[in-house]
Design a protein around this nucleic acid. Structure first.
Length: 581
DNA sequence: GCCGTTTTCGGCCCGACTGTTTTCAGTCG
């Protein structure tokens, strides 16, 4: 096993021990060891072979023995026995909000519950509410949690859908019988979560293309296969649909299948108002149902369709009926940000807190990608679970960043790391004093532990925005897509406070967050609030989130001028030092 | 589980909220 696999086993052991009610310090030792492994710079098998595993802090005799067995043989009887002794349903139950190991254990011990279904039945029978430490509210929350999980089981995060779609799209593009092809639907509109993946192809040989599609690598099963369309289930349980049309129909089908439904309704209304009829097969000179090619207006691209309906081209991201028609009619749609405009990210983590890589590794990777800057904003002390930095460690880190930058300067490169923090917004104050914040290039203030009181959460965020050293607020609502709803919060009031104080707002580009939501950027932009698209990177492969975040920013109507991290390093330094209002 | 030591077992361990309590356990980040 490699270190990722070993880390996964150790994490699972820790979770299983929690469910058995083991000493929390013991379970934590496993979780800590897993995290340490993931952060190792050199190969695990080398360390094991050279007998240096025990030199690593947190690795005693027991862990060295178990890790060595996993690395050298891929087996660990202790793990197998432990796993066999715990019902798999219990691990699944941990995924329900408000249920942790203690409650799950109690439910299992007292009620014999070992599946989600059994838990649901027990709640409905009122058996949970009468348990010691449980009550009516807990029982209700568990039922809500189960419903929430089921509701979102059919939705998928954008990056996962993209990862599945891109190789298939590339494959279709190479096929000799494919003339034009594209994704469509919510994926093309860059929605934050995706129900199913839509592909559109134009071809003279639909049967061949469909056969090719259903035999793509990653296709788990074929749910439907006809003359013009097919549906398959691909890896990750995502449904993917292919539609094949003639090349003359292609732009109409692309517009139709891209949607949104609401956008399409307005498009059809505009067609009717002009004595035309719009559907997936064409824009026809007729108000009757028809597919007669002789009546079809000659449109080769989507641009042509919009023009026929007296509109400038509307980018797919904007097709939500959120004001795009009025703007397109007036020729006032903004020129949207391009992801290649971005020069760096201002909210990221290193192995000083809960990130995976060293400052050197991060700087090397960012420079290699052609970026201009990258801020290191590790967690502050209160984020204990994330190994948050004390003021002393932060001060040490400043020196280390300076040393990395000196090396960069000596090698003649213009790329620089920036110092910073993601400082916790505590109940009455920020986690670091102002004089420390004043020494940093970048200060991101984030709420990690919010309450249930909307007014109080709002007040805390506004107070953070009013701090003269805070450049921006991070992941405003704390939502985790498909997992956790936003904190109760008056977002508009916070945006107004940002406008009044000159505080920037983060667009957190992690595909689990995309926070602030695209629907609110239009408002923020109208108030003059600047956006910062941040990766919140915890490892090198999170750098690609810049592209995801740029798509969300486009969906929020943002232009290059609205986004701070399109600035050059010199311009950015000036903006960071500029006095807030 | 690990660590450190007044060398053999006690301490490890932030800050806040919710729901259950009537002073605290469990959960979360």
């Amino acid at each position: 096993m490699d270190k990722e696999q070993v880390a996964a086993v150790l994490t699972e052991i820790g979770t299983l021990l929690e469910l058995k009610g083991e000493n929390p310090f013991k379970t934590r030792a496993y979780h800590n060891a897993a995290r340490t492994l993931e952060g190792l710079a050199e190969p695990l098998d080398k360390i094991v072979a050279e007998g240096r595993l025990g030199e690593i802090k947190g690795f005693g005799d027991a862990l060295v023995d178990k890790i060595t067995k996993l690395v050298t043989t891929g087996q660990l009887p202790y793990y197998d026995e432990l796993k066999a002794s715990v019902a798999p349903g219990l691990v699944e139950m941990l995924g329900i909000p408000t249920l942790g190991p203690k409650k799950v254990k109690k439910l299992h011990d007292e009620l014999g519950v070992d599946t989600i279904e059994a838990l649901e039945a027990a709640c409905k029978a009122g058996k949970v509410a009468v348990l010691d430490g449980f009550g009516e509210k807990t029982q209700t929350k568990i039922l809500e949690g189960i419903a929430f999980k089921r509701q979102f089981a059919s939705k998928h995060h954008l990056h996962k859908a993209l990862a599945v779609a891109q190789p298939i799209l590339e494959s279709l593009r190479q096929h000799p019988d494919v003339t034009r092809c594209s994704t469509a639907g919510s994926l093309r509109r860059w929605k934050e979560t995706i129900g199913d993946i839509d592909f559109l192809v134009s071809s003279r040989q639909p049967t061949e293309v469909i056969e090719f599609f259903v035999t793509q690598p990653g296709v788990l099963s074929v749910s439907a296969k006809g003359d013009t369309k097919a549906s398959v289930i691909v890896e990750g349980g995502i449904q993917a649909d292919l539609r094949v049309v003639s090349d003359a129909e292609y732009p109409f089908a692309l517009a139709y299948f891209t949607g949104s439904k609401e956008h399409n309704i307005v498009m059809r209304q505009r067609a009717i108002a002009r004595g035309l009829r719009l559907n997936e097969y064409g824009l026809f000179r007729s108000t009757e149902e028809t597919r007669d090619p002789a009546l079809r207006l000659p449109c080769n691209t989507e641009e042509d369709i919009f023009r026929e309906l007296d509109l400038t081209y509307v980018e797919p991201e904007l097709r939500e009926d959120h004001g795009e028609f009025a703007a397109a009619e007036a020729g006032k749609l903004p020129r949207l940000l391009e992801w290649t405009d971005l020069r760096g990210s201002l909210h990221n983590h290193s192995n000083w807190s809960d990130g995976h890589e060293t400052l050197d590794q991060i700087a090397g990777h960012a420079e290699g990608l052609g970026l201009s800057y990258w801020a290191i904003t590790d967690h502050s002390r209160a984020s204990f679970q994330a190994n948050g930095l004390s003021p002393e460690r932060l001060t040490q880190q400043l020196a280390d960043v300076a040393a990395v930058n000196q090396k960069l300067a000596d090698s003649g490169t213009d790329f620089r790391l920036l110092t910073g923090t993601e400082v916790d917004i505590l109940k009455e104050r920020l986690d670091f004093p102002d004089d420390l914040l004043a020494q940093l290039d970048v200060v991101v203030a984030s709420l990690h532990v919010a309450g249930s009181d909307e007014a109080d959460n709002t007040k805390r965020l506004i107070r953070a925005a009013e701090n003269p050293h805070v450049h921006m607020l991070g992941h405003l609502t704390g939502r985790l897509l498909l997992e956790r709803n936003p904190y109760p919060l008056n977002q508009q009031a916070v945006i107004d406070a940002c406008a009044a104080t000159g505080t920037w707002l983060e667009l957190n580009a992690s595909p689990w967050r995309f926070d602030l939501d695209w629907r609110l950027w239009h408002y923020a932009r109208s108030k003059g609030v600047k956006c910062v698209i941040n990766c919140d990177a915890h490892r090198l492969d999170h750098f690609g989130y810049l592209r995801l975040g740029a798509g969300v920013a486009r969906k929020g109507w943002l232009t290059k001028a609205d986004v701070i991290n399109t600035l050059s390093l010199a311009e950015l330094r000036k903006a960071l030092k500029g006095r807030k209002k």
